[in-house]
Design a protein around this nucleic acid. Structure first.
Lengths: 199, 199
DNA sequence: TTATAAGCTCGAACACGTTCGACTTTCAGG
DNA sequence: CCTGAAAGTCGAACGTGTTCGAGCTTATAA
């Protein structure tokens, strides 16, 4: 019965995770202490460190869950006949509204995702799926003759992702304050990218 | 002699600032404690809080100084006849190498600049100068007939700044690991923006 | 000049993330 | 079964950012 230890371990891990999710949602990352989490999970605070080596790590795990949820909603849209610009704006605005829904959560998450404390190998599969989805979108556009053929679709994804980042930066630094402004800005940037600016 | 208090206050403030700069350079933000700073400045650690309300605030101040230095170096380049792409890459790579010179410093700074804890009005003049500089660059390009006329130069600046952000994100998430890769990626993205991708 | 208000300073204490060390439970081999 | 090793648990303690409160210094005005 080697499994007893492992089963308990799995249970405890889950209890911590659940407690964290509950408290992060109720309060926030910053206002939730390790002790709160431990109490909620019914264990001592030191024990938490047997499962996660840092408070941030718990948060990252929590984010991964949240992102999976958000990502699931992106799966539906497919090679439709709406134009590329609209589809791109939809794609990124969905993510934008999700991330900025709770300003503090988004800020913490973005800091950790874009400028992580350490290179986070675990985040890469997620990025991968995300960029795959984007590439697929461009692939459709290529077939629909909306973009010129032979483009590097990966770099195209990076390009639009960067513009999305720019909008997020504008949001968090206070230059954009409403969803409408954000969408308008995004549209403007995306159009520049599609049309090009060189003479 | 109303000035006595104020003069002392100014001195103490400067002492804290100097101490912080010295220690942040010698060690790092994280490894420097408030107590270290206080000791170096010859005051009690509580006193620091009469001048800065948080450790981050001291860091922000320090960053502003650093950024001013970096910015000064950008002033020189002017309406030359080198092509726009090269000038843009030069402009942003200078900033990139500066920021990433010390990985930890850059990370901390970017987190605070791009996703600040609170909207930081003090940062705006700096941004302003920065974007002014970029706009000037595009203005030259417009005169040199390198870009099509009538573009929104501000949004053009935002566009390229966003791409720069994308490169930084790639750096900190581990997708780009050498300066050469970063420059190559930047060049590729910039070219896309200039040439456009629509059919 | 002196009384009072306002501002400044710092030792002590608090909060919270994290580590240490000792105790308990589980597991594997004889 | 036993027994010794490994893994898990937690109270106590540490480090550091931040606040409290009491005492001291400076400014003001009668």
């Amino acid at each position: 019965m080697t499994g007893l230890r492992e089963k308990r371990k799995e249970q405890t891990r889950q209890a911590i995770q659940d407690a964290a999710v509950k408290l992060f949602n109720a309060k926030s990352f910053e206002k939730t202490s390790i002790e709160d989490i431990a109490k909620q999970a019914g264990i001592g605070k030191t024990t938490v460190y047997g499962y996660f080596s840092t408070k941030e790590e718990i948060f990252i795990n929590y984010c991964d869950d949240k992102l999976d949820q958000a990502f699931a909603r992106l799966q539906t849209n497919d090679c439709t006949d709406t134009n590329l610009l609209d589809r791109l704006v939809d794609f990124f605005m969905l993510k934008f509204t999700f991330v900025t829904q709770n300003r503090e959560f988004g800020r913490q998450l973005l800091r950790e995702m874009i400028f992580p404390s350490a290179v986070n190998e675990k985040a890469k599969p997620h990025d991968q799926r995300y960029f795959d989805r984007l590439e697929k979108l461009f692939h459709c556009a290529e077939e629909n003759l909306e973009i010129s053929p032979g483009q590097d679709l990966f770099y195209l994804s990076v390009h639009f992702f960067s513009l999305y980042l720019g909008i997020l930066a504008g949001w968090y630094t206070g230059y954009l304050t409403s969803l409408e402004e954000a969408e308008e800005g995004m549209r403007k940037l995306f159009r520049q990218a599609l049309e090009g600016v060189a003479a």
